[in-house]
Each structure stands twice: as C-alpha cells, then as structure tokens.
C-alpha cells in the first residue's frame, strides 16, 4: 500500500479569509520533507488543517492518506489513522497527568469496534515499561509523567512533551509545526536528537517539518524542501534550498514569484 500523504489543490479559509490557495504536496512514506516559509505564509494553517481543527475551513481540494480522504475524518480518526501533529503551541490541560493521558490515547489507538476496550487496552506493566524507555530516549525525568499536561511547562518542556507523545503513539506520518520555535540551542538539540532517534527506530515514518528557520535542518536532514509563500508552494528542491534561504532570505523568491506572476 502506498502510504504517502497526498495533498491536492488545498484551499483553506480562516474566518472567511483565504489563507491556503491551492497547495499540491506529497509527503512520501519514510521521507523527511521540510516546509519553509516566511511569517503569514500559511504554514500553521496547513498543519492545523491536516489535523482537522474546526476553525480551518477547507473550501476546495483533497488530502489522501492510506486510501482515505483525510478531510472526511474527525480529528481523532485522523490520529488513529496514523497522522500526528506536533503543535507549535501545545495546550495545557490542568488535572490530567501526562501518564494518564498517554495511556488513554494509546488505548484509543488500540480500540477496536465491537470489542470490549478492556480486552484491547495496553497492560499497565507494558505501558510503564514503554513510557520509561521513551522518557530515557528523550532525556526526560520520570517525574515528568506525573505532571499535568503542559500545565506550568516551560517552552522547551512543552516541545519535549510533544515529541514524547509522538514516541509513545508511534504515528506513521508526523507533521511538526515549528517544533524549533522558542527553543534555545540546547533544548533544540535535545528535541532534534529525540526526533532523529524515533525516526531511526521507525524508518518507515514520514515527517513533514514546518519551520521558519533553517537551524532545525542542521540537525534533522530533510530529503525535500518546499517553500510556502502566500498560501502556495512556490519552490521545491533538495536540502541545499534550505541553505540558500538561510543565506539569502525569502525576498529573492518573492521577487521571482511576483516576476513570474506578472
């Protein structure tokens, strides 16, 4: 089965304003794709739309994954299909511990229609072992699991928790929305190493890295780089394109695009 994520002519409005103006993009199974673009180009809109946030209204287009039109699915169905979004701004939920939440999420993935959920639930010992391993993988203290979800977390802790969730839920396609933002260089290295370790263990996983800056790509090597500008993909290339953007900024592309357009 083809497990590429295929986005076709995707148009999205937010509060009546068109943000994505026809995105065509294929994220291949097992590959790392990066989407770069200036502020306001529509990067986060693409991420939230893929995850099914109700505020983002798809007016045209399709998104296919594992033989299903993702746009027809509820947010939780998308997750259970294997899509994962690492949020740029993870949400705090007081009173819900990281461990309890992860266990519930894993059990939701394991649930089968018409089967007693107690039969499909992950055994507690197995869950604990897995959690401990993943915490170690990400250099995180075990006390982390007892804290409430993102409640009082630093920026770096929030991003690490996103990666921990990815490590626990084992998605087949991960969309990472500015996972590098707000991190100092040490935190960035820890998060990037975490992503690389997960990818090493699960080479079949596809990743769509959304980022403003090239610096994350020093640690995570993309196979393909796409440039998003004003709601459209305007350039595609190899890793060298990211370096070029770092050096020259986005303006030269903008000029070229406007030049082509006029």
């Amino acid at each position: 089965m083809n497990n590429d994520l295929v986005i076709k002519n995707l148009h999205v409005e937010v509060d009546g304003q068109e943000i994505l103006k026809g995105i065509d993009l294929t994220v291949e199974q097992g590959k790392i794709h990066a989407i770069m673009g200036p502020n306001g180009s529509g990067k986060s809109t693409l991420a939230y739309t893929l995850a099914g946030h109700p505020r983002y209204e798809v007016t045209e287009g399709e998104v296919w994954y594992k033989g299903q039109n993702v746009l027809d699915l509820e947010p939780d169905e998308r997750a259970r299909l294997g899509l994962f979004l690492a949020f740029q701004y993870p949400v705090a939920v007081a009173g819900v511990s990281v461990a309890n939440f992860l266990r519930a999420a894993i059990n939701a993935h394991r649930a089968e229609e018409g089967v007693d959920p107690r039969k499909t639930a992950i055994p507690v010992a197995e869950f604990r072992k897995k959690l401990r391993e993943r915490l170690q993988l990400l250099n995180m203290d075990e006390s982390f699991a007892r804290r409430y979800l993102n409640e009082g977390f630093s920026g770096g802790e929030k991003k690490r928790l996103e990666i921990l969730q990815m490590a626990m839920l084992e998605p087949s396609m991960a969309v990472m929305d500015e996972t590098d933002s707000g991190l100092d260089i040490d935190a960035l290295r820890i998060v990037a190493n975490g992503i690389n370790s997960i990818k090493e263990q699960r080479p079949e996983m596809g990743i769509l890295l959304i980022t403003h800056y090239q610096r994350l790509l020093n640690y995570i090597k993309p196979d393909v780089v796409h440039v998003l500008m004003d709601g459209r993909i305007v350039r595609e290339g190899g890793p060298e394109l990211a370096l070029e953007l770092e050096e020259k900024g986005y303006d030269w592309i903008r000029e070229e695009v406007i030049g082509h357009a006029s």
Binding site: R80, L85, A92, V93, A105
Partner: peptide, 13 residues
C-alpha cells in the same frame, strides 16, 4: 482548544 488537543491524539470526542 483543550478538547481538540486531546482529540488530535486519538481520543474520541
């Protein structure tokens, strides 16, 4: 936003 966040991890609404 809390509900969406939890749903995005696979929990039914």
């Amino acid at each position: 936003e809390q509900v969406f966040y939890l749903r995005s991890r696979g929990l039914p609404e």
